[in-house]
Each structure stands twice: as C-alpha cells, then as structure tokens.
Nucleic acid binder design. Structure first.
Lengths: 149, 149
DNA sequence: TACAATCAAATCGTACACGATTCAAATAAA
DNA sequence: TTTATTTGAATCGTGTACGATTTGATTGTA
C-alpha cells in the first residue's frame, strides 16, 4: 500500500512533467502560426471530423463549456473556425473549419513532424506508451464513473 | 514520416487526456483539504526536502516564477507554507512547511491511496509507464536543449 | 395547450501556466 | 571604487481549465 502510493506520486508527477514538456515543444512550433497547443488539439479533432457541435467537441477533447466557449471564440476571431447556430435545434452551435485551417494544415503538420523527428522516438516506444496511457486513462475514467454515480 | 506524425498526434492527445484525468482524480480527493492538484505537487516536493528556494522548487517542478510566486502566496495565506527571505543572499526566498502541512500529510496521503486502489493499477503497469514517460520526457528535454541553445 | 424537466451554451469566479518585463541584490570587470 | 553584468523574485498580459450558475430552447407529460 505504501509502495503503491509512492509509485503513484511518481507517476502523477511524471505525467504532469511530460505533459508540460509536450506543451512546450508544440508551443514553440505553433507560435509562428498564431496557435496555442490546446487550439491545435481542436484543429486536430476538426481535421478528423468537421461540423461538430460544441457538446461533441467538448466530449472528444474532454473539455467543458467553460474552457471551450472562450477558446473557440478566440479561434473564430483569428479566422480558424466559424460558429453557427443550428437551424433544427437552436440550442446547438456547430463549429466549421475556415479556409485558413485547411490551407495551413500541411505546413503546420510538416513543421511538427520535423520537430518530433529530433526527439528520435521509436515506433515501439509510441506503441507501448499509448497502449499504457490509454489503459490508465480508462481505469481512471471507470473509477470516476463508479464513485461519481 | 506520415506514420510518425499521426502516432505523435495520438500520443500527445493521450498524454493530454490522461493528465486531465489525473488532475480530476486528485482534485476530488484534495478539495476537502482545501488544496489544488498543483499545490499538492508542491507539498510532495517539500515533504521530500524542506527549506528550498523558489528557484530550486521551480526547477524541481518544472515551473516558472510566473506560476510559482502567486501559487506559493496562496498556500501561505492558507497556512501550508511560509516564505522567508534569506539573510545571506537577499535575492533568495526560502519556503518552509508549516505545522498544518506536517499534520495533514498522513490523512491526505491515506485518502489518495484509497482512491488510487480503486483504479486497480498493477506494479508492472506503474513501472512500465514511468520508465517510458521518463524516457520520453528526457528526449523532449534533450531536444529543447539542442535547438534552444 | 400548459407546465415541468431537461438540455446546450454562455457566463462568472478561481487557479494554474507561460513568456516578457521589471527591480533589487550580488558579483565581476574596468 | 565605480560601473556593468548577472541573478532571483515579483509583476503583467494572455490563455487555458474547472465547477457553478444562468439563460434560452426543446421535450415530456398532464
């Protein structure tokens, strides 16, 4: 039990730090494009699937309305996306990618790919890490479901 | 190259999400104690080694003065720590744990341990994840050193 | 139809997190 | 010594991030 606790302290710290480093790496690449890291994650989601509601976007990113609303507004001001209220259900607001987002996709991803290659991460490392992280993420979410409900 | 990019997108997203889930789990436990997750990480660092300067604390947590100064001030207002300017070098400010931080250490860690056990994480999982995360963290840091310098 | 419950966004208040700037103290150089 | 540089904190502005509350639209039910 004591071992688990101290392991966990190390783990939560390692995740905290690595997330921070990732943030810094992406920030340095994205800054020239006038994008922040979380904003890039939004584009990533929208490049996968365009025309989604705030609700769906929030679910996919694990973000609430308090975070997303002002962030999307900023992205709209900067010409990345467009907000439009649904005609069928006026409660819903859909997000659409703007030209700029399509145009800049290639140069942005190219710059990121360049930067990532400097880190010299192997395919096995990616695989291993993602599998483990997703496992952990799932367990954390299961727990909150069982205790929170 | 294309594979690496899409793998990396998945990875940065997985870390982003898992970090968020960890944050939520700890927040739910720490809230009753009047602590935030980053504040707990500060206590964790100080329980390891007390009487450190802002500078050293920032280095250990990977946080800058712009984050740390207001955070420590809040923790001082709430009675967790005390700030004191060094006599030898008046530029330095040392942080000291207060009684409350010592007193609450045991109940806090106990509650966290309880919550973690619900997630059912194995020793191998901890080990594997931490090793991989630290490897990655190191590579990210090496890169920023070589490009930034 | 009418009214309650529900749902989607927006808003508000608090707390990180970072880069850039400022300021005082300490150290190095002239 | 006097000046120049460096160093450690604090401050400022911008941008997440979250829970709680509010507002307006929709749906369910009497």
């Amino acid at each position: 039990m004591k071992d688990f606790l101290s392991l966990n302290n190390q783990l939560c710290f390692a995740i905290y730090e690595t997330a921070g480093e990732f943030n810094k790496l992406y920030t340095s690449v994205l800054q020239p494009f006038g994008l922040t890291y979380p904003q890039y994650l939004v584009l990533l989601a929208l490049w996968e699937k365009d025309e989604v509601s705030m609700k769906e976007l929030g679910t996919r990113l694990g973000l609430g309305t308090g975070t997303l609303t002002p962030m999307i507004s900023r992205m709209q001001e900067n010409g990345w996306v467009r907000k439009e209220r649904s005609k069928e259900d006026e409660r819903k607001v859909f997000i659409y990618l703007e030209e700029k987002a399509h145009r800049d996709k290639s140069p942005i991803t190219k710059r990121i790919a360049e930067e990532i290659q400097l880190c010299d991460i192997s395919l096995t490392e990616y695989d291993e890490l993602m599998t483990r992280l997703n496992e952990l993420d799932q367990k954390l979410k299961d727990r909150s479901k069982s205790t929170g409900a």
